[in-house]
Design a protein around this nucleic acid. Structure first.
Lengths: 199, 199
DNA sequence: ACCTGAACACCGTTCAAGT
DNA sequence: ACCTGAACACCGTTCAAGT
């Protein structure tokens, strides 16, 4: 019997304020914005941050959870598209676009993430696998590329574009284009290494 | 007249010990190994680190400088290869392989790097441009891809492979293969975004 | 000249004291 | 039950004091 009392009113308010403040602060200052600044922006004491989120990483995880779910929803909506190749490209475009903002290695995070994020991530992975399978069956993706490959490659366009100094904000689209051409069956060369263990 | 006295014997010894200790420590613990640990490993006081390298980033820069020069040398040796396409692929393989070890976003670093690194980097960039131009003229690289594109894409295979949990250590070769297929003229689709300003 | 370790400012995190 | 700010451990960096 986990009789969970409803939380106090100021607690829910503070939690929401912290999430909003953290999202803003991270977007402006990057992932190493200080907890103190986030607390100040949310109008609470530093200690309150750690009452709601055991660690700074947990706070990041809470924000990340929303983004992953958004992405999964977008992917699921593309599962019954008429053109499976275009659907996969569209999904990768949404993925790159939403995380254009920041660092975001969160999609595949190492080690001990909290179970909610792990679950959300696995749902998203399953969606990617389906999208890739459909695209492959349709001849839009080469036979030797797996869903896991695409999951790993997903973040590359943003990563690559982020290192161009005075680059246009949509540069990632160019590298997504090159990547996608690499995923196509036309002109594909055999790959020197087997795919990694499935995600 | 910058009459530069030769440095004291213990100074050169300490500097070399620090570089070696830092390289080891970074390789083992990652880029956020502590300066205190590096100093201890080198057998000097913490303060000595900052006498030789104004900042931790400068210490990293000194290590990075060597790697960049190695890469440039490899690239220059490939400029007169018979097969320019294979030469470019080989260069990208060397690049990925040498920086298999670690983080290494250093190749294109933001803002205020020290001038020695900036110079080394520009030499390397020029080499990449030549390799790409030759490969393109030879029909091994698509017409709409620039040297700057390849400079930016260079790090992607390592980055992508680094997020696969139980992956084989040579997984980057697989993603270099996919990337390289994306760079080939066969089956290339028009890119939605123009190339970034030249590096 | 160069080395050293104590001292500083800044982080994430903890916790006793308040309401 | 929740909030708060002082306190702690750990960083990179500085600098007065030593040789």
């Amino acid at each position: 019997m986990t009789d969970t009392r409803p939380p106090r009113a100021d607690a829910v308010r503070n939690r929401a304020a912290l999430l909003a403040a953290a999202a803003d602060e991270f977007a402006e200052r990057g992932m190493d914005a200080s907890v103190a600044d986030i607390a100040r922006r949310a109008g609470v004491g530093k200690g309150t941050v750690f009452r709601h989120f055991a660690t700074k990483d947990d706070l990041i995880a809470a924000i990340v959870l929303d983004r992953i779910d958004e992405l999964t929803t977008a992917g699921e909506g593309l599962l019954d598209a008429e053109d499976p190749g275009a659907a996969l490209l569209e999904f990768l475009t949404v993925a790159a676009h939403q995380r254009q903002q920041r660092d975001l290695s969160f999609l595949h995070g190492a080690g001990d993430v909290d179970p909610a994020v792990a679950r959300a991530r696995e749902r998203m992975y399953r969606t990617v696998h389906e999208l890739v399978d459909r695209a492959r069956r349709h001849g839009a993706v080469r036979a030797d590329v797996t869903g896991t490959d695409v999951i790993l490659l997903m973040c590359a366009p943003n990563y690559v574009a982020s290192y161009a100094p005075g680059a246009p904000p949509e540069l990632w689209r160019r590298y997504l284009g090159i990547l996608f051409d690499g995923l196509r069956p036309q002109g594909a060369h055999p790959l020197p290494e087997p795919p990694p263990p499935a995600l």
